[in-house]
Design a protein around this nucleic acid. Structure first.
Length: 441
RNA sequence: CGGGGCGUAGCGCAGUCUGGUAGCGCACCUGGUUUGGGACCAGGGGGUCGCAAGUUCGAAUCUUGCCGCCCCGACCA
């Protein structure tokens, strides 16, 4: 993509509305544009990141054997009345009436909807487990939206649902998602810690929040530092195998949010040198709620005795739009964003500092075409701005690699590759550039 | 929803106390000179001062009502 042809409204000054780093940078880098409180339009650069994250999440869900579906944003009130949540869910739920005055709502989540889909189709225990997910926009009319995309009212979420015959088998599904989440966050370049979460009225130990450590986090977490060393799920995962050992290696180490934190337990279980307390951003939540929805909604299957039983359900969320902000919170410096390569909107930024020199333009065009053909995503700054303006804009938008065509590049046929994160710069022959970038990928 | 703050050009702000018909920086347009860390000179365009009503000879400024946005708190991916 050529910058001269790209819709990238970067701002030199920070809009007064933004408070936290990720919000400021997202606005300044032209990633989003606020529509109203907690509701944003996604501009090209932001959308590319959102899609990258979405695709990684999708690939990992598929790898775990979860089926992708797409449920509507607008749901009928009826199914929510069935589950009993129509009255329980407060003003956070946006309720609307259609032209026939039927009660509808903009979905804040999809347990009812998916249970309805399930019960229409699945009748036998032989078809279990059943795993479904979708990636869809949700709306929760938050009391107070804030922090830009991190706590919007409208947000993009991956939510998955499991259906199993009983508690034992639903634990197998739960573990599957647990491990899948570890893998997913790792691919996103994040270190997400699974922490024991409140299970509410259901009880039990089957609820975890996945939290990334960040100053701006909204939850206060206490954990055993050694859990960070476990966060390396590099190996190919075989989801057909028993995943209990992986899950229990995490559960063995203390990690809890303040609402579940017990000082005594923490100090007893964690040697003092491993005790850590910090703020975190919740980016995922997995939850098993047994028959809470299946029972009132009559989502039953026949078991091997021919008896109708309520299925055991779980739900598993990842806040995709929130992750865009969370990644920035976890990866930036004073000059701007530093994208992990996996989610970067472009892999490299090609900067032509000699943007008025026809010869330089010709060489840069050639480099641009070569990189594109090599399958490298490149944003080519072909604009006629001063070097300082180009550098600071490139730093702001945070592409992992900057390729700089400068004063001497024509003469010596060398070009600089600068690493956005480390600022490490190396000169390579222009003819070697594409090969160099491909191997470093 | 309680507490606090803000709303003046695309963005950041001054002007409001003390009423006299709107200004600065950046951005934008034109011409010229510049090009390794947000260039310079000259010229130029752009604002129903959030909306409405009121007070007044006269309102960005005073009064009342409404709307929007941000921050802190209680709740949430």
């Amino acid at each position: 993509m050529k910058l001269s042809n790209y819709f990238l409204p970067v701002l030199k000054e920070t809009p007064a509305d933004a408070e936290i780093i990720s919000h400021k940078f997202m606005l300044r880098a032209g990633m989003i544009s606020q529509s109203s409180s907690g509701i944003y339009s996604w501009l090209p650069l932001g959308l590319r990141v959102l899609k990258k994250i979405e695709n990684i999440v999708r690939e990992e869900q598929n790898a775990a054997g979860v089926n992708e579906i797409l449920m509507p944003t607008i749901q009928p009130a009826d199914i929510w009345k069935e589950s009993g949540r129509y009255d329980d869910y407060g003003k956070e739920m946006l309720r609307i009436n259609d032209r026939q005055d039927r009660e509808m709502l903009y979905g804040p989540t999809n347990e009812e909807q998916v249970a309805d889909i399930f019960r229409r189709s699945i009748k036998s225990y032989k078809e279990l487990p059943s795993l479904l997910y979708h990636i869809q926009w949700k709306f929760r009319d938050e009391l107070r939206p804030r922090f830009g995309v991190m706590r919007g009212r409208e947000f993009l979420m991956k939510d998955a649902y499991s259906f199993d015959l009983d508690e034992d088998t639903s634990r197998v599904s739960y573990n599957k998602f647990f491990v899948c989440y570890l893998k997913t966050f790792e691919r996103l370049g994040l270190r997400a810690i699974p922490i024991a979460a409140e299970t509410g009225p259901i009880g039990g130990d089957m609820s975890h929040e996945f939290v990334i450590i960040s100053e701006t986090g909204e939850s206060d977490i206490f954990y055993d530092k050694r859990i960070l060393d476990l966060l390396d799920v590099d190996q190919e995962l075989d989801y057909t195998k028993d995943l209990r050992s992986i899950v229990s290696s995490y559960q063995a180490l203390y990690a809890a949010a303040d609402d579940k934190y017990s000082k005594d337990e923490f100090e007893k279980k964690v040697p003092i040198e491993f005790q850590n307390n910090s703020k975190g951003i919740e980016v995922g939540h997995i939850f098993n709620f047994s028959t809470k929805y299946s029972e009132p909604m009559k989502a039953n299957v026949l078991n091997s005795n021919g008896k109708a039983v309520s299925v055991h359900m779980g739900s598993y969320g990842i806040g995709i739009s929130r992750l865009v902000g969370a990644i920035i919170e976890a990866s930036h410096d004073e000059n701007g964003i530093i994208w992990p390569e996996a989610v970067a909107p472009f892999t490299v930024g090609l900067v032509n500092l000699k943007s008025r020199d026809t010869e330089a333009i010709a060489v840069c065009e050639n480099i641009y075409n070569t990189l594109n053909q090599a399958g490298i995503e490149v944003l080519y700054d072909d604009k006629d701005d001063s070097p300082g303006a180009k550098f600071s804009r490139m730093d702001l938008i945070g592409l992992p690699k900057q390729i700089i065509f400068g004063n001497n590049s024509l003469k010596d046929q060398m070009i600089e590759i600068k690493d956005r994160k480390t600022s490490h710069t190396e000169k390579v022959k222009i003819s070697d550039l594409a090969g160099k970038l491909i191997t470093s990928k």
